[in-house]
Computed example of a mutant assay.
Amino acid sequence: MPKILRRNAQIAFILIISLLAGCPTDSSDALLTVEHAARGAFAAAISHDGRYSLVSSIEHGVVLWDNTTHGLKYQWSQSQQADELVHSLAIAHDNSSAVTAANDRFAIWRLSDGQNIGYYQIEQGTIRDIAISNDGRYVLYGRSDNVVVHLDLDSGRRIEFLGHQEKINSIALSPNGHFALTGANDYSAYFWDTRTGQVIHRFNHPSRVTKVALDPEGRYAFTADSMKKASIWQLTSGEIKSQLQYIARQKIFSAVRFNQDGRLIATGSPNRQLTLWQVDNGEKLATWRVKPREGSRPKSAVVFAVAFTGNDNTLLTESSSGLLEQFARE
């Protein structure tokens, strides 16, 4: 057989074997697409159950959308200064409240009636990431000056966590507000008790930690660095559960969410990618791509948030395109 024919036959065989092995697909077809920001979003969050999306954009300020009716629920101004740009935001696990943050201030909002609960100014550094607990009682935020602050809004009690040596990139708070996971440029992530400031586990990485997430049931933590290590840790022991399996030399995560039973984890990336993984072995199960904003150059989009819906058979995303998209597991 001529060499070129033999080479073509080998390639065809590899493709057939890959298909039979059930390799994850990379589809760009969303089941549903809803525009939430006409000229693109600056930041976004989705509630744990997928019911609400919170979107920050230059044109509309901060808007809360009801994803069950696809209607606008509330439109909020960050503060008296209407030109402030909200770059970090979060919805409480119990859908009681939300927090929105600009560089040096944040605001708390009640979801039942849309009322503002309070505006808060910070005196040092700038806010890099923010989270809020159930009932809107506790707020956690990471600052550019290496400090993480845990604030009890009921009592005013404040704890400053000083374990990091460089600026904070990502933080996560347990639903009850008692535990925090924080990642920074010092190559480390800390899991700590917000009532005492005591470190429970330290997770080390070979480069700066850019994204962290907590399983709301308290089973696992997710930490990822700026190069090629993304790990899932058991919170009871601090031992590694698995590492996400990919071959890219560099992979950045911009969104992470565990599913309800802790078997799956979904991630979003700055390159339009939405990926579903198996927690116990880090195996990739499926991949999709969100849509770029129409007319954008280059055709790119950052996945800001992801959530599981429909008994974990569908996933929702919010991206910098200003779009809510729904994807189905095959």
Rank of each mutant, 00 (worst) to 15 (best):
W109H: 10
W109F: 07
W109E: 08
W109N: 12
W109T: 08
L111M: 05
L111D: 11
S112C: 01
S112F: 04
D113K: 13
D113H: 09
G114D: 04
G114E: 09
N116F: 04
N116G: 11
G118D: 04
Y119A: 10
Y119P: 09
Y120A: 03
Y120T: 13
Y120D: 01
Y120G: 03
Q121F: 07
I122T: 12
I122H: 07
I122Q: 09
E123P: 05
E123D: 11
Q124V: 13
Q124E: 14
Q124L: 14
G125R: 05
G125I: 06
T126L: 08
T126C: 05
I127C: 01
I127L: 06
I127V: 04
D129Y: 07
D129R: 02
A131G: 02
A131T: 02
I132Y: 00
I132F: 00
I132R: 01
S133K: 01
S133C: 03
R137Y: 04
R137S: 07
R137Q: 14
R137V: 11
R137L: 10
Y138A: 05
Y138M: 09
V139K: 02
L140K: 06
G142K: 01
G142F: 07
R143M: 13
R143A: 07
R143Y: 09
S144R: 03
S144G: 10
S144P: 08
D145G: 05
D145A: 06
N146P: 11
V147A: 13
V147Q: 13
V147K: 10
V148M: 06
V149Q: 02
V149L: 03
V149I: 10
H150M: 06
L151K: 10
L151G: 05
D152G: 01
L153Q: 08
L153P: 08
S155M: 03
S155R: 07
S155H: 04
G156F: 04
G156M: 09
G156I: 12
G156N: 11
R157V: 14
R157I: 13
R157C: 06
R157Y: 09
R158I: 12
R158T: 15
I159S: 15
I159Q: 14
I159N: 05
I159R: 13
E160L: 10
F161H: 05
F161R: 05
L162V: 09
L162M: 13
G163R: 00
H164L: 08
H164Y: 08
Q165F: 10
E166G: 08
I168Y: 04
N169W: 11
I171R: 02
L173D: 01
L173T: 07
S174W: 00
S174C: 12
N176L: 09
N176D: 15
G177Q: 08
H178L: 09
F179L: 08
F179E: 02
A180Q: 03
L181M: 00
L181V: 00
L181F: 06
T182I: 15
T182P: 12
G183S: 14
G183F: 15
G183R: 02
G183W: 13
G183L: 08
A184W: 02
A184C: 06
N185T: 06
N185C: 13
N185I: 04
D186L: 14
D186C: 15
D186R: 06
Y187F: 03
Y187R: 00
